[in-house]
Simulated scan of single mutants.
Amino acid sequence: MPRNRPGALRAALRSQRPRYRDEPPPPRIHGLSARTSLAVHHAERHSPDYWYGRGSTDTALRNYRAFLHSPGPRPRYPRNSFCPACPGCALDDVREARDALADILPRLPPRARAELRRTVTPLDRRYLLLTLPDPLAERETPWWHRRLADGVEGW
Rank of each mutant, 00 (worst) to 15 (best):
L9S: 11
R10W: 06
R10L: 14
S15I: 06
Q16W: 06
Q16D: 11
R17T: 04
R19E: 06
P24H: 08
P25H: 10
P25S: 08
P25A: 09
I29W: 06
I29T: 07
I29G: 06
H30I: 03
G31I: 03
G31H: 02
G31C: 04
G31D: 06
S33P: 03
A34E: 15
R35C: 07
R35G: 13
S37C: 09
S37P: 06
L38T: 08
A39H: 06
V40D: 12
S47A: 15
P48R: 08
P48K: 07
D49K: 07
Y52C: 04
Y52N: 07
G55P: 05
G55W: 01
S56L: 01
D58G: 13
T59G: 02
A60E: 08
L61Q: 03
R62W: 02
N63P: 01
Y64C: 11
R65Q: 09
F67P: 00
L68N: 10
H69I: 02
S70G: 14
P71Q: 11
P71L: 14
P73D: 10
P73V: 11
R76G: 05
R76K: 01
Y77C: 07
S81Y: 00
S81P: 08
F82H: 11
P84A: 10
C86F: 05
C86M: 08
G88K: 08
D92W: 06
D93V: 09
V94R: 05
R95W: 05
E96V: 02
R98P: 01
L101M: 05
I104W: 04
R107W: 10
L108W: 10
P109I: 00
P109N: 13
P110Q: 12
R111H: 13
R111V: 14
A112G: 07
R113H: 14
R113K: 11
A114D: 13
A114L: 11
E115F: 04
L116T: 11
R118A: 15
V120H: 08
V120R: 07
T121H: 13
P122D: 15
D124C: 10
D124W: 09
R125N: 11
R125A: 15
R126T: 15
R126D: 09
L128Y: 00
L129Y: 04
L130H: 12
L132W: 08
L136I: 01
L136S: 09
E138T: 04
E138M: 01
E140P: 04
E140D: 11
E140W: 02
T141H: 14
P142H: 14
P142F: 09
W144G: 10
H145G: 09
R146I: 08
R146P: 01
R147Q: 10
L148V: 13
A149E: 13
